[in-house]
């Protein structure tokens, strides 16, 4: 099985703090990590490879420092990695990003599965996977938690509000992965050594036959007009007293306010 995993290097948004005075984001000192959902995507890819053979190639579109994220993926067990990096990719929205990633997949050729995390924790759009599937003209399975492969077709569980759908499909496919039941594997010593030695190829726009009108800012139909910090609700009331007193007081207040 030839599998491509798309990963994104993201700021660890759980570590982000808001400056209480200026009410703006403090970006300094926020560590860069591999998007957590992409690690689950990689774990899924590695399990499929370990069981059915083949190769796992990790790709990322980003600035040169995103190669650190790719090295981490190699340390976890990915066979190869490619970084897509070019000034021409700057300013990409999901449509342009998915186009660029899909051009890289096209260049590789004969890919059975493209696996992505369901969404990145900085943008939270969940759009790049399905948009890649459309660019590549292949089927898609989104919000997937389990995959069984019988050599011909996949049987996958697709998350729904009340449970899950069981879906069958044949590769080639784009699959997006939710949090799995098991944690992504941690890098091995051998893998880390390999990651350290690995030369990570960088593909530019010219390498993957990018149409400049479809990439970067020019290929992005959406544009961010304004960024602002969300309004917080007004601070409420702390109810004092021991548990019993506080509860009695709370219920009184709820009844007075006709909430109960």
């Amino acid at each position: 099985m030839q599998i491509v995993v798309c990963v994104k290097q993201v700021p660890d948004t759980t570590e982000v703090k808001i400056d209480p005075v200026t009410n703006t984001l403090i970006r300094e000192g926020v560590p860069s990590i591999v998007n957590p959902f992409d690690k689950y995507a990689l774990e899924m890819a590695l399990q499929l490879r370990d069981k059915h053979g083949g190769k796992v190639t990790v790709i990322s579109m980003g600035p040169p420092q995103a190669s650190a994220a790719l090295r981490e993926c190699i340390a976890m067990g990915a066979d190869e990695a490619v970084l897509l990096s070019d000034r021409a990719f700057a300013g990409s929205d999901t449509l342009a990003t998915s186009y660029t990633l899909s051009q890289a997949v096209r260049k590789m050729g004969n890919v059975d599965l493209v696996i992505c995390g369901k969404q990145a924790i900085d943008g939270d759009t969940a759009q790049v996977g399905p948009e890649m599937a459309e660019h590549l003209g292949i089927g898609q399975l989104t919000y997937i938690s389990t995959i069984e492969f019988d050599g011909e077709k996949l049987i996958a569980h697709r998350e729904q509000d009340e449970g899950y759908d069981v879906i069958e499909a044949k590769p080639p496919l784009v699959v997006t992965i939710i949090k799995l039941a098991m944690d992504p594997r941690i890098p091995t010593v051998k893998g880390t050594a390999k990651a350290y030695r690995s030369e990570i190829p960088v593909w530019t726009a010219a390498d993957i036959a990018i149409d400049p009108k479809s990439a970067g800012l020019e290929g992005s139909p959406t544009l961010v007009r304004r960024i602002f910090t969300p309004e917080r609700r007004g601070k409420g009331e702390l109810i004092q007293g021991d548990s019993k007193e506080a509860v009695d007081l709370l219920v009184d207040k709820l009844r007075q306010a006709k909430i109960l």
Binding site: V16, L25, V224, R226, I227, F228, P230
Partner: peptide, 8 residues
């Protein structure tokens, strides 16, 4: 950004 900012 994890709900830390809003974008229009």
């Amino acid at each position: 950004f994890g709900g830390n900012i809003m974008a229009t």
